[in-house]
Structure formats: C-alpha cells, structure tokens
C-alpha cells in the first residue's frame, strides 16, 4: 500500500545531542515527508524519545540543523513547535490527571483560542461563543476516537488503553500538521493495538497528518509505516522502506538479534 507522500517537511541534518558526557544522539540525519508515516525504531536507550524531543523543541541539540518546511530553525521552545503545528503524545502518559477527558482535549485547542482572561472572567459573548465553537471541534474528535461515553470522566479513573486514546485526542485537537507519537501501543493488548493502528491510519488518511511514530511492536511498524529509521546507541544504522530495513544485516544484528 504505497500512499502518496509529498515534499520533505522536516529535514534533520547531522544532529548531535549530549547530556554532559553522555552522547544521546550522534550525527543523525533523516527527513520526514509530508503525509507519510515515519517510524523510528531501535533498542531501549537508542535515543528514540530524545529524537522526538529534539523535533518538538524540548531538547536543544548541540550540533546539527533542523529545517522545517525549508526554513532553518533556530533554537526554539516547545510552544514554538506547537505554534508551527507539531503535536505529540508521550511514552508515559502525560495527561492532566485532575481534569476530565473533555477538559484535557479542550487544552489541545489552547493555541487556537483568542479570548483573554478578562473575557473569560465575564464568560459572556465572545468568550462563550469561542468555548462553544471549540467544543464542536472537540466533539468531532471525541466521535472520531469513539470516546463519547467517557467525556465527563476524570482521566485518572480511566484504564490505561483509554488514557492513551485520550492523549491522542488531545494531540489531535490542535489539528497538527505533524503528530509525534511516542510508543502509542506500549502495554496494550492485541485488540487495543488494532484499535490504535486503525486510529493512526485514519488520522493519517482523514486529516492528512504526517506521523512520526516510535514503536516496539515490529509487526505494527512494518505494517503501517511508509519509511523506517533505525537507531542504535544514538547512531543511525538504517533508513528506508520497511522491507529494506527488515532485511538490512546491520539492523538485524543490532536490533532483531544477531546469530550467536
């Protein structure tokens, strides 16, 4: 199933990231094309999450350049990334536990809301209209991800699989161009994984969202990715179509286990 992928949207060139003496990423280059599902795989500690954190501005690489839509990106903060349309989910669920599902997803709309706090204090006219308008959009996502029945539930009370889904909903609420998913299927059973795969493919298809995915389940990765990049000990050891990567001897040795 070869989907049509577009121009390069994120171009990472020679990225190196260090924490003190620890080299998290060394000289990594790869690109992400518009509308594709790009997977990052690798053993634990390979630097996959660090890579996502570099893309959305949580970490600042010491060396290398990031071009976003052809523009060289200077040092940026996470909210800049959000403003440019990059949303993400986290490996360990990072929902706002004290809030309901609905409020959590509404936070995803924050950057699109224009009223100031004085208007909010009045909650009249513009502020209320804005709240309702964004609620409509959020309800669309709630329906899309089939979580209507839990919209008023505090997220802390939800089972793990649903929390992951709510986190995806929160990221989608921002209507991102690029969605970074950090192990969206970790700890799920087969049915939940199938649901999540379906949602990811639907998002990619329906909203045209570019997706960068970290995942350990090789079956899932090989099935849904357009291209795969493989990291090991902070270095890139493979990059290409799923089938190419699968048969790359380096990747097999480092990741899928060599012959002993």
């Amino acid at each position: 199933m070869a989907r049509q992928s577009g121009d390069v949207i994120v171009d990472l060139r020679n990225i190196s990231l260090r924490f003190g003496g620890v080299k998290a990423l060394t000289d990594i280059s790869f690109d992400v094309r518009e509308h594709e599902i790009r997977s990052i795989i690798g053993p634990n500690g390979a630097g996959k999450s660090s890579m996502l954190n570099v893309i959305n501005g949580v970490y600042h690489p010491q060396e290398g350049q990031i071009h976003f839509r052809g523009q060289l990106r200077r040092r940026m903060e996470p909210h800049h990334a959000a403003e440019q349309g990059i949303a993400r989910t986290f490996q360990n669920i990072a929902l706002f536990r004290g809030m309901t599902v609905l409020d959590n997803i509404m936070t995803g709309r924050a950057l699109k809301m224009r009223c100031n706090f004085l208007q909010h204090a009045l909650y009249w006219g513009a502020a209320q209209r804005e709240e309702v308008a964004h609620r409509l959009k959020v309800e669309e996502i709630i329906e899309f991800l089939e979580i209507q029945s839990i919209r008023k539930t505090p997220v802390g009370r939800l089972p793990y699989g649903l929390q992951k889904r709510v986190e995806l909903a929160r990221a989608l609420a921002a209507e991102p161009h690029i969605l970074l998913l950090d192990e969206p299927m970790a700890g799920m059973n087969v049915e939940e994984k199938q649901d999540m795969c379906r949602f990811i493919l639907d998002v990619n298809d329906h909203y045209g969202t570019t997706i960068v995915l970290i995942e350990h389940d090789m079956g899932v990765v090989m099935d849904i990715s357009d291209r795969v990049v493989v990291l090991d000990y902070g270095r890139k050891i493979g990059d290409g179509l799923p089938d190419e990567v699968k048969n790359d001897p380096d990747v097999i040795r480092a990741y899928l286990g060599g012959a002993h």
């Binding site: 996470p78 909210h79 949303a87 986290f90 706002f96 924050a110 950057l111 921002a174």
Partner: peptide
C-alpha cells in the same frame, strides 16, 4: 512539560 508541548 505536557502543557508546554501543547503550547502553553
């Protein structure tokens, strides 16, 4: 951290 990533 999540709040920042969302854009707050």
């Amino acid at each position: 951290v999540a709040a920042q990533v969302i854009g707050f």
